[in-house]
């Protein structure tokens, strides 16, 4: 889903994620330019381009939207108008992990509310919001089309089928711990290299 962002992140280290003007050699700019060329700067490809921006940057910032408007020769108002019309576009950075609870009809009938409430209580994060420490965003999806497995939730894009609040909370903990241990491994590796040098 965010392969482009991962590629950009790998190339730029973690720089740029903290906000502020991107450096001129920000690899994400090149990625966006590639996407713009792919659609031949056609104004009717605006939604495609916005998807690419979200994929590359994680969210739509005013600066990038202005860049897009210039590139497609559209008024910024039109770009913002389209971007705000559609639910999938986000204007804020998401947390390191996302938990998306499906609130489609089948999931509603089978207790999606309890899932949402359970995560809110366990992690102190409101629906549609991101935790203050940036570790977790709690989102809702209209329907991911896995109604036979209702209720469902997605953790970083992976489906948790026939979910219960406890199972979902446990799955979030597992995802968070996995990334923590991955970070530890990176730190250890870095320390190891430092020691060797």
């Amino acid at each position: 889903m965010s392969a482009l962002r991962a590629a950009a992140g790998a190339a730029s280290g973690t720089a740029g994620a903290a906000g502020g003007p991107p450096p001129a050699d920000d690899p994400r700019v090149a990625l966006l330019t590639t996407q713009l060329k792919k659609v031949r700067y056609r104004a009717d490809a605006l939604i495609d381009v916005l998807h690419a921006v979200q994929d590359i940057y994680g969210y739509l910032s005013p600066e990038v939207l202005t860049t897009v408007a210039d590139a497609l020769q559209l008024p910024p108002s039109r770009v913002l108008g389209v971007a705000t019309f559609y639910h999938l576009f986000s204007f804020e950075a998401r947390g390191d992990h996302t938990c998306t609870v499906c609130t489609g009809t089948a999931c509603f009938v089978k207790g999606a509310d309890a899932l949402m409430a359970g995560v809110t209580e366990a992690y102190g994060v409101a629906q549609g919001a991101t935790r203050e420490d940036g570790s977790l965003s709690l989102l809702e999806a209209r329907c991911i089309g896995s109604c036979g497995l209702a209720p469902v939730a997605l953790i970083d894009g992976a489906v948790v089928a026939k979910a219960t609040p406890d199972a979902l909370i446990a799955a979030i903990r597992t995802a968070m711990e996995a990334s923590e241990s991955a970070e530890d491994a990176v730190r250890e590796a870095a320390a190891g290299e430092g020691g060797a040098a």
Binding site: G104, A106, F108, R142, C143, G145, C147
Partner: peptide
């Protein structure tokens, strides 16, 4: 654009 929540015929 199968927007009806609770339907996944077209997706399949």
């Amino acid at each position: 654009d199968e927007g009806d929540p609770g339907a996944y015929m077209d997706r399949t």
